[in-house]
Each structure stands twice: as structure tokens, then as C-alpha cells.
Amino acid sequence: MKSTLCLVLSATLTGCATESIEEPEATVATPGAFVAVDTPSSPMSLLRTLDSFKNGDDTILVFTEYNVIPDSWEEAEAMAKLPDLPIRYLETPGSFNTFTQFDHRVVWYRTLTDEERERAQ
């Protein structure tokens, strides 16, 4: 149906793509990614990646940790979409190898502002 509509309108409208492309996803190391982490010893937490850099075999991640306690991945995603969240730690480092031992999920992504980017410098 959509492709038919594209054919009909192709003479008059610009930019009718005919195939979907693979949509790139954010990872834990992507600056701007919101990451929810569920550890056995503590409640779920919500972090945001500010920067990452290589350190030998490991990758050092710089996070902002928010002062929220989501009950589920879905709630963590809903919280990440809010424009303002209370911050527990403005910046906190972490090891990628250690981090990936815990249950985690990238729940959202938002590009960093200049202020947020400078936070990681």
C-alpha cells in the first residue's frame, strides 16, 4: 500500500524511499545513551553516557547517574524521555568490562548539549 502510494506521488513529491535501511542503535559507549543497570545487590539505576575512551583492553566510560529508581526497563525508558531528571552524580567513571557483567539495557538516546559534553572533559 505504501509503495503504491509512493508510486502515485513520486511524480509530485520528493524523497520517496523504497526500502527501509537498518536503523543504527546506540550502545553503552555512545555519548548520549541512557543506560538502565540492574544489579543483584542494589536497585535498578539510570545512567547516561557522556564519553568513552580506550584504556588498554578496556574502555573507560564517563556517566551521569540520575537520582531515580526505575522498577522496570519500560519505566527506565519513560524516565529517560523526561527533559529533566534529578542527578545523583554529575559524572562518574566506570569500566566497560565490569559494566557489561551486569544486566543492562540502552533504553533511550538523546544527543548531548555542549554543556553536557564539557562535563566529560
Binding site: A26, W108, Y109, R110, T111, E116, R117
Partner: peptide, 16 residues
């Protein structure tokens, strides 16, 4: 609009 996280951000505060 879907933002591309794999490319360096051109503008801040753009949601996925």
C-alpha cells in the same frame, strides 16, 4: 524523525 546515534551529533538535545 529518528536520530542517528552512530554519527557525531550536530546538535544537542535531539531525542532518538
Amino acid at each position: 524523525v529518528r536520530e542517528d546515534p552512530s554519527r557525531p551529533a550536530l546538535q544537542g538535545r535531539n531525542d532518538l
